[in-house]
């Protein structure tokens, strides 16, 4: 009798948990996030690119969010439903910019690509891979 009741409670708890986690996953408060430009052209891959980017986001609800580049917060907004900012950024590789809340959850992300005008040069390897073995 007791074991049946415990079983029902645990099953109910499991379904509640599953449902609530799924609901949280699918409920994205950010309805718009853009960062422009989306690409930067450098002479050679590895060269540093300096960009003036325009960041724009909007949300259905007031949020505390930060714009993150490589774990560094470039700009934060407190209790805001939208944000727009012009920021200077430096890149030396293709980078993902993320909008995170104060729980460090990623709410939105955008890739900014780096392309090179000089194509990569290749040559034949003179030792095979893992020749140390």
């Amino acid at each position: 009798m007791y074991s049946k009741a415990i079983h029902i409670i645990l099953t109910g708890y499991f379904f509640y948990n599953t449902f609530s986690v799924n609901a949280a996953e699918f409920k994205q408060p950010i309805i718009h996030f853009s960062i422009t430009p989306l690409a930067c052209i450098v002479k050679q891959i590895g060269d540093e690119c300096q960009l003036t980017t325009t960041v724009d986001w909007q949300s259905e609800q007031a949020l505390d969010v930060c714009l993150i580049q490589d774990k560094v917060a470039l700009k934060c907004w407190k209790n805001a439903i939208s944000g727009k900012s012009v920021l200077p950024v430096q890149l030396n590789r293709t980078t993902t910019f993320t909008l995170k809340n104060n729980k460090t959850q990623i709410l939105a992300k955008q890739l900014v690509k780096i392309s090179a005008t000089t194509p990569k040069k290749y040559r034949r390897k003179l030792r095979s891979d893992w020749s140390l073995f």
Binding site: Q44, I45, K120, R123, R124, K125, F133
Partner: peptide
Amino acid sequence: QTENHIATDKLHFSIALGAG
């Protein structure tokens, strides 16, 4: 095509982890 070629002017670092 790429396995036997290597990009120049770039440091290529790999590591093999395992048992041997």
